[in-house]
């Protein structure tokens, strides 16, 4: 079993961030959507712990890379978009921090309150939703690198899964349609 362990105060160097900027977002979106779906499938207790049945849209904003992620939870479905920037009005809550700090939170290596005290993460919007998400994710004992490697292995062994993601609307499966994307 691999574990992801590195300092949560690590910051992606500017030249790396600049090099990432021209790259298309769709492949990353497909990967992250399938990763999020597989994590929720493996850890259904995440949604149980969050305990909200209303549609929740979180903006995850890694401050040291040139993209951001919108995650939408609705019942047992998770939808995901990778964006250059958010429309704040469509988010219920936003979490900003370095990529390492955000991964550290998911992976259980970092403490959310400590990152908040040190100003390494900033949270805005529906704080109850953020707290529920933070506690649910911490309780799920997610090993992000292992989950990602499992997905890569799946893609290698079943290339059709990747192809379906590329051809269909797989990345945004479960996501609200544009008509449904009302302000919280």
């Amino acid at each position: 079993m691999f574990t992801l362990s590195f300092r949560h105060d690590f910051r992606v160097p500017d030249f790396v961030s600049s090099a990432l900027r021209p790259l298309p977002l769709l492949p990353l979106e497909i990967f992250l959507q399938q990763l999020a779906s597989s994590i929720v499938a493996r850890h259904p207790d995440i949604l149980e712990r969050i305990g909200r049945t209303d549609r929740l849209r979180f903006g995850i904003d890694p401050s040291d890379v040139p993209f951001a992620v919108e995650i939408e939870l609705h019942h047992s479905v998770v939808g995901l978009r990778v964006l250059r920037s958010f429309d704040e009005r469509l988010l219920h809550a936003r979490i900003t921090g370095t990529l390492a700090a955000l991964i550290g939170l998911v992976d259980g290596e970092a403490d959310g309150d400590a990152l908040f005290f040190s100003r390494e993460i900033v949270v805005t919007g529906d704080i109850a939703a953020v707290l529920a998400l933070r506690n649910a994710v911490d309780a799920a004992e997610i090993k992000l690198l292992s989950e990602a490697l499992a997905l890569v292995r799946l893609w290698i062994s079943q290339p059709g899964k990747l192809l379906r993601g590329l051809l269909a609307d797989e990345p945004r499966r479960g996501y609200a349609t544009d008509n449904e994307r009302t302000q919280p």
């Binding site: 550290g104 259980g108 290596e109 970092a110 403490d111 959310g112 309150d113 400590a114 933070r134 506690n135 911490d138 004992e141």
Partner: peptide, 10 residues
């Protein structure tokens, strides 16, 4: 009790 596994362990 409101803190993470990382806090508890440390």
């Amino acid at each position: 009790r409101q803190r993470s596994r990382a806090y508890t362990k440390a």
